[in-house]
Write a protein that binds this DNA or RNA. Structure first.
Lengths: 148, 148
DNA sequence: TATGAAATGTTCGAACT
DNA sequence: AGTTCGAACATTTCATA
């Protein structure tokens, strides 16, 4: 149920909000060639239809002392349900995101830790908790994210 | 150069903004027990010190027709520099993020595509462009992200 | 260095056209 | 989709500790 198709103006508004999520309606209105009220109605509509799921602040985690980022691939025992996988991984506070995966492995976990010792400890915790039968960790040296 | 250490109030403000990046200063002020002006000054300071790198809108990409998410591990020829890796991967519009990795592989690429054919096409494009000597793709079936 | 209060200008939000 | 207008908000200034 797509509700409404988005037109080019909606996409323009999304781009503006992706670059600065606190941009005001008054600021965006002239950029898209509409009145303030029309901009607000479009953003409200995208919120209601679920296209916009929220707004958030972007943080430099390294400056908060979480300098190391890693991905760990997890293999689970054959009897483990997706629900269990998500539950056990999300219980670990260092885990930022969990992706369940098609194919020979079962989950890819994105985590942030303070240092190498901490990384070791979290991996051990993941291996110990539940039905994990194998892991492979990729330590992130650098990253680039599309500036939407 | 950390500039300033963050106190518990700053962390509280970050949590509030992570949950809703458009929350107003007037709304946050009573929650952290400060005046509106003090809250604004703290947020401004975290922006200036680089702890806060920006604000953005969160979008449901599936509703925009980019229903498939995948991670592709890339191996590059030994002579390839990190700069080249980031450049070639970021040139592909479907790529959302590139992580350079320690160890036997060289990069992990996060991508969003419309469908399986599109995924195949993007992988071929990555393999063709530059010095990629091997890939392994993990298709995402489901995901969970910490609701900071 | 950090704060609160007050003054000013801006933006929002809900009418209605 | 635009316009209007009272309320809410942001931002600057000033005084204080």
């Amino acid at each position: 149920m797509p509700g409404h198709e988005l037109d080019e103006t909606d996409h323009h508004l999304l781009r503006l909000l992706q670059a600065d999520g606190r941009r005001t309606f008054s600021e965006m209105a002239p950029e898209v060639g509409l009145s303030v009220a029309a901009v607000k109605r479009r953003v409200d509509r995208m919120r209601e239809s679920g296209v916009i799921t929220g707004f958030t602040v972007q943080v430099d985690h390294a400056k908060l002392g979480w300098g190391i980022e890693a991905f760990t691939e997890l293999r689970y025992a054959g009897t483990t349900s997706v629900k269990e996988i998500l539950a056990s991984a999300s219980r670990t506070p260092e885990v930022q995101a969990v992706f369940t995966i098609a194919g020979d492995l079962d989950a890819l976990v994105h985590m942030r830790v303070r240092d190498i010792n901490h990384l070791q400890e979290v991996i051990d915790r993941l291996r110990g908790s539940g039905k994990v039968i194998g892991t492979r960790t990729l330590m992130v040296l650098g990253s680039w994210t599309r500036d939407d």
